[in-house]
């Protein structure tokens, strides 16, 4: 057998039709609806008939203060949760990769909320944040600290939900950082130990060399934050008023009200927002990535 025939026999073993099942499901239930959304966002739509109305839905979006505050809240929520997850999880990962004995146990405890239903977590924290008798305010009160109405105060509600999101996401972020730190060759830590203390280790070894893990956490948290819906819906339903509405909750409300065209325009706005933030970030991170 010549090597040419041999390689053709090998390629025949990797036939393109193996893509077919995945391609059909992904195409029909993801690509087609995504493509359709661009058209239907330009219509007044009742599922049965759609009237083309040009950019009217987008104009409604830009002019409606509730929809615009949803857009602003989405960005605030995503940036805030992403930032806090990085800032808290990186030191935690350092702690859990140092000599601490209980690191396995602590890592499990931190990670567990990742596997619990978001709705269940939302219900639980809504009860813990209850203004008068809730555990959080009881503790704050006994320490003589102010007791805010976490979810009832329109200026606070979005941030309260964001804090719970951070609480839930710390585990996965920490685990990714731990994987990043563990992949750094031991020699670097040796040098850092001789050169100085924890700060040197953090600033000159972990921060630069665990860059890939940092990029991953930023991307995952950012994507998750922009798309976040369940937690906000379970805790405030976008309220009080529209104070904690984000794009996804606006999309749901417009859908419930039967404004399918407007809801879909919201979907397209979210699509564009996610793409213009995440895609350049990904390109940039890919260029900056390091090989260890």
């Amino acid at each position: 057998m010549t090597s040419n025939m041999q390689s053709r026999a090998v390629l025949r073993t990797y036939p393109y039709w193996f893509y077919l099942p995945a391609a059909i499901v992904f195409g029909v239930f993801f690509l087609v609806p995504t493509g359709l959304s661009f058209y239907f966002s330009l219509t007044r739509w009742s599922l049965f008939d759609a009237t083309f109305i040009g950019f009217d839905n987008y104009i409604t979006f830009l002019e409606d203060p509730m929809l615009m505050s949803g857009l602003r809240n989405t960005v605030i929520y995503a940036v805030l949760t992403m930032g806090l997850k990085v800032i808290i999880a990186l030191p935690l990962a350092m702690l859990l990769t140092s000599i601490i004995r209980l690191k396995g146990l602590l890592r499990s405890i931190l990670f567990f909320p990742t596997l619990v239903s978001t709705i269940a977590i939302g219900i639980t924290f809504a009860a813990l944040m209850q203004p008068s008798a809730g555990l959080i305010n009881t503790v704050l009160g006994s320490l003589g600290l102010p007791q805010p109405d976490w979810l009832g105060n329109p200026r606070l509600a979005l941030y309260s939900v964001a804090l719970v999101d951070v609480w839930r996401g710390i585990g996965i972020a920490t685990v990714i950082f731990i994987a990043g730190i563990s992949s750094i060759p031991q020699d670097y830590f040796e040098v850092a130990r001789l050169e100085g203390g924890t700060w040197v280790k953090f600033r000159h070894v972990i921060l630069p060399l665990c860059r890939n893990a940092t990029f991953t956490v930023i991307l995952l948290a950012f994507i998750g934050g922009l798309r976040s819906f369940d937690l906000i819906w379970a805790m405030t339903r976008g309220g009080p008023g529209f104070a904690s509405d984000v794009l996804t909750s606006v999309i749901f409300k417009e859908y419930q009200a039967g404004f399918y065209g407007l809801s879909t325009a919201g979907n397209v706005v979210l699509f564009i927002l996610v793409t213009i933030i995440i895609y350049p970030l990904m390109r940039f991170f890919n260029r900056m990535e390091i090989e260890l």
Binding site: Y19, F29, L36, F40, T248, T264, F271, V274, T275
Partner: peptide
Amino acid sequence: VASVASAIMLAGLIIPPAVVPTIFTLQ
């Protein structure tokens, strides 16, 4: 083909579901 497919997969991780158009497709 494989690199195109993997680019599409990546998009699938990032892009949120288009809600009502998916209902339309299912219907």
